[in-house]
């Protein structure tokens, strides 16, 4: 009796699911090449660098709108920490890192489905308080004010070292922050006068801080590679998300966020 009833319930659920899938199939996503691609549904797990947070959150919404039935679940963090957790066996479909060096951790472990592709580039800017009260014009002015840099272990810190070297400037910061958002917060709260952060971070926080561009940033361009994982639990979803990153729609969102899209 009980089993008969549960069987009935299960059939009903299946029928409903079939009807729902039929509905979505009638409503093909508007993106290029998605019509004939394998069906995309379920959760797509994306590990992405902290600096991608704003733009990827937006892209995730648009992706879900384009692929009803698919859901994107993000984990934003320091690229190195994300790479470590992927190597430790985290079930991930797509990994977007803020530097080739952190991506190398994952490719060296032979965990990637294909070769990583550089999908955006990011440059540094000097973040200063609104109105630039200390009149900071370039890297050479950082020696005289209280500065926050990213720790050299994380990509934004490595880029800062390169840029400062290119400018021939030595800066002893008040602090080496553990990620770029930490360096940004310290400026926002007025605890330091300046910090070296990504151009995209300045754009995302434009209401509270100003950015100062400097020529040496061209020497310290950060490539962001993205890749799908070989053991992706949702391989179709991973492929669709990578495809979507290449779409005009996604490129526009990324450009607006301040990234250079190659």
């Amino acid at each position: 009796m009980r089993s008969a009833r549960s069987l009935l319930a299960a059939t009903a659920v299946l029928a409903l699911a079939a009807a729902l899938t039929a509905c979505t199939a009638n409503n093909p996503p508007s993106n290029n090449g998605a019509q004939n691609a394998p069906k995309v549904d379920g959760t797509v797990t994306v590990f992405a660098a902290a600096s991608l947070k704003e733009s990827f959150t937006e892209l995730g919404k648009r992706f879900e709108a384009a692929y009803p039935g698919a859901k994107v679940s993000f984990n934003f963090g320091g690229s190195s920490a994300l790479a470590q957790s992927i190597v430790s066996g985290a079930p991930v479909d797509v990994f977007a890192a803020a530097s080739p060096a952190t991506m190398k951790t994952v490719t060296d472990a032979k965990l990637t489905g294909e070769d990583p592709r550089v999908f955006v580039r990011n440059t540094l800017e000097i973040a200063v308080a609104k109105g630039n009260p200390k009149h900071i014009g370039g890297l050479k002015d950082l020696g005289g004010v209280k500065t926050a840099l990213c720790a050299k272990e994380v990509p934004c810190g490595a880029a800062a070292v390169t840029a400062l070297k290119a400018a021939g400037v030595e800066v002893t910061p008040a602090t080496y922050e553990q990620d770029v958002k930490g360096a940004l917060t310290k400026v926002e709260l007025g605890e330091v006068d300046a910090s070296l952060v990504y151009r995209t971070d300045v754009k995302a926080d434009a209401a509270k801080i100003d950015g100062v561009e400097f020529p040496e940033s061209a020497q310290a361009v950060n490539d962001y590679p993205v890749v799908s994982l070989g053991k992706a639990p949702n391989a179709n979803g991973a492929a669709a998300f990578l495809g979507y990153l290449n779409s005009m729609d996604a490129r526009r969102v990324l450009t607006e966020a301040g990234f250079q899209v190659p």
Binding site: A81, Q84, A151, P173, T175, Y176, E177, K186
Partner: peptide, 18 residues
């Protein structure tokens, strides 16, 4: 913050080494 010798305690050093 985090500056070696001034404010970088062991847990901070461990985190960054990680």
């Amino acid at each position: 913050g985090n500056f070696p010798g001034r404010t970088q305690t062991m847990p901070l050093a461990v985190y960054l080494a990680m």
